[in-house]
């Protein structure tokens, strides 16, 4: 099962390497990963997607917590979080397909961010499922290039992670 996990870490030299080598060294999967500083500049937030059965996920959580630079690990899989992802998509758009692309962009409230006579580049954000859905519709028209950020996630409700 897919899990989206946020890892709050000390903004120290080499932290990302520690997190990623934990996954590779122990044979855990990383499907996507994003990192950026938070409102507290001493803390960075890593969001990653991983897979595994319950026992593996428990180990991943514990092993992440065990890293000295990890402050908190939040697993959003129980629906406690909101996930958003961005994708940039370059699609073939010639003659008759140009209108079709625009229609899809419109339905998904995506944006055209670059135009050439033979292509459109689209920016779209949303829950990962929404990105998958728009890609499904665009794929038959000819995907030239796809860039996904992987999801970031935040807890629901009024509280911040520090509670």
């Amino acid at each position: 099962m897919k899990h989206t996990i946020s890892v709050l870490v000390e903004n120290e030299f080499g932290v990302l390497a520690r997190v990623s080598s934990l996954f590779s060294g122990r044979g855990f999967n990383i499907d996507s990963l994003s990192v950026a500083p938070t409102n507290d500049e001493t803390i960075s937030r890593i969001t990653l997607e991983t897979r595994g059965d319950e026992q593996i996920l428990e180990q991943i959580n514990k092993q992440l917590n065990k890293l000295i630079d990890v402050i908190k690990v939040i697993d959003f899989t129980d629906g406690s979080g909101i996930e958003r992802e961005m994708a940039l998509v370059k699609v073939t758009a010639e003659d008759e397909s140009r209108a079709e692309v625009l229609r899809i962009v419109d339905i998904f409230r995506a944006k055209i961010i670059d135009v050439t006579p033979r292509s459109y580049t689209i920016e779209t954000t949303g829950a990962p499922a929404k990105i998958n859905a728009i890609l499904e519709l665009l794929r038959p028209l000819g995907l030239k290039e796809l860039v996904r950020t992987g999801p970031v996630a935040i807890g629901r409700g009024a509280k911040g992670w520090k509670g």
Binding site: F13, G14, A17, R18, S21, G25, I68, D69
Partner: peptide, 13 residues
């Protein structure tokens, strides 16, 4: 630090 990352509890540069 890279070489010993998997076999140290922690490391500092």
């Amino acid at each position: 630090i890279g070489i010993t990352r998997p076999c140290t509890k922690h490391s500092f540069l």
